[in-house]
């Protein structure tokens, strides 16, 4: 029997799209619900990737424990970043969080003892312990699976779990207060609720999702280096949540598939421009930049959001 014996390039694309869906949902919680314009979301992605990898590969921690530890470290880092910066005005917050991401990337390049620097680091335990063992035992029962299939399935199960948890959380009284905070900070404080704590919690929750995405990224790459954590990762996340519409969770998942999957990762398989690869890559990101500009200008509410969401983002 053959079960996902050959998932082909689109299977790989779908895995990346799922990773970005989780990453962008984290950003959606922060920007769309907490009103925190975090331009350094990639920092938590980086923390998740490096922390889990270092803990698992160098300190023998289990894969699940390592993943959860990465998420926990990212949440602590998010609160530490939030404490001083959430009091800043919007554009300073954007610059500061962006700088935070770049500082971490510099550290990852320079602290070779910890991260192996620009040479990069290996995260092969998942591939070896889980994937190989799984395929071996399935092969004994005459079932063939592609070596990329387990992560593809795991990623999309996690996408659904994260989306469901986030969606349900935002419908609780907690989520309701968070929305109120984004609309009118002072009015919430006047009711005896710590508006600042709500923003910080949104930041931490979003950071946890980014860290989870980071760990999946590490497992998918097997070998990765600091160059995978440039600010463009955050911006891709912004393109996804703005195109979906601020506040929408399921729209974010859909847009991650369309933008990161079909457009950015997948276009090399369906679009033949006849250009050299490097130029085609540049063209892809030109389109991403242009798309962001056009959405912001002509449809700031995104495909699934309401215009009021974008307006409220400024208060």
């Amino acid at each position: 029997m053959e079960l996902l014996a050959e998932i082909g390039p689109w299977g790989a694309v779908a895995t990346v799209a799922g990773i970005y869906a989780i990453f962008a949902m984290g950003l959606q919680v922060q920007v769309g619900h907490g009103g925190v314009d975090n331009f350094g979301q990639v920092a938590f992605f980086l923390i998740g990737a490096y922390a889990s990898t270092i803990l698992v590969e160098q300190h023998g921690m289990g894969l699940v424990a390592g993943t959860l530890a990465g998420m926990a470290i990212a949440m602590v880092a998010a609160v530490i970043v939030a404490l001083p910066t959430l009091r800043l005005r919007g554009d300073f917050l954007a610059i500061t969080t962006l700088a935070f991401g770049e500082i971490l990337r510099n550290v990852a390049v320079n602290e070779r003892g910890l991260t192996k620097g620009s040479a990069g680091i290996d995260a092969f335990t998942f591939r070896i312990d889980i994937v190989r063992e799984l395929r071996r035992s399935l092969r004994d029962q005459d079932i063939l699976v592609d070596r990329l299939a387990p992560l593809l399935i795991l990623t999309w199960v996690l996408v659904l779990v994260v989306a469901l948890v986030t969606w349900l959380l935002l419908r609780t009284p907690w989520g309701r207060v968070l929305r109120a905070v984004r609309e009118d900070d002072a009015a919430v404080r006047a009711l005896g609720k710590n508006a600042f704590a709500y923003r910080a919690q949104a930041m931490a929750l979003g950071a946890a999702w980014a860290a989870l995405a980071g760990t999946l990224y590490a497992w998918n790459q097997v070998h990765f280096s600091p160059s995978g954590f440039e600010p463009i990762v955050t911006f891709a996340g912004f393109v996804i949540i703005i195109a979906a519409g601020l506040g929408t969770i399921w729209g974010t998942v859909l847009m991650a598939i369309l933008i990161q999957g079909v457009l950015i990762e997948g276009s090399r398989y369906w679009l033949d421009t006849g250009l050299p690869n490097a130029q085609e890559a540049s063209l892809r990101y030109m389109v991403v930049g242009l798309a962001l500009m056009l959405i912001v200008r002509f449809r700031p509410q995104g495909l699934f959001g309401s215009r009021a969401e974008m307006a409220a983002a400024d208060e």
Binding site: R176, R179, A180, E183, D184, A186, A187, A190, L191, G192, S306, A308, E309, A312
Partner: peptide, 13 residues
């Protein structure tokens, strides 16, 4: 507990 000069309401709730 205080109120505000311009009454505040969470418009999207």
């Amino acid at each position: 507990v205080r109120t505000f000069q311009i009454p505040t309401a969470f418009n999207r709730l």
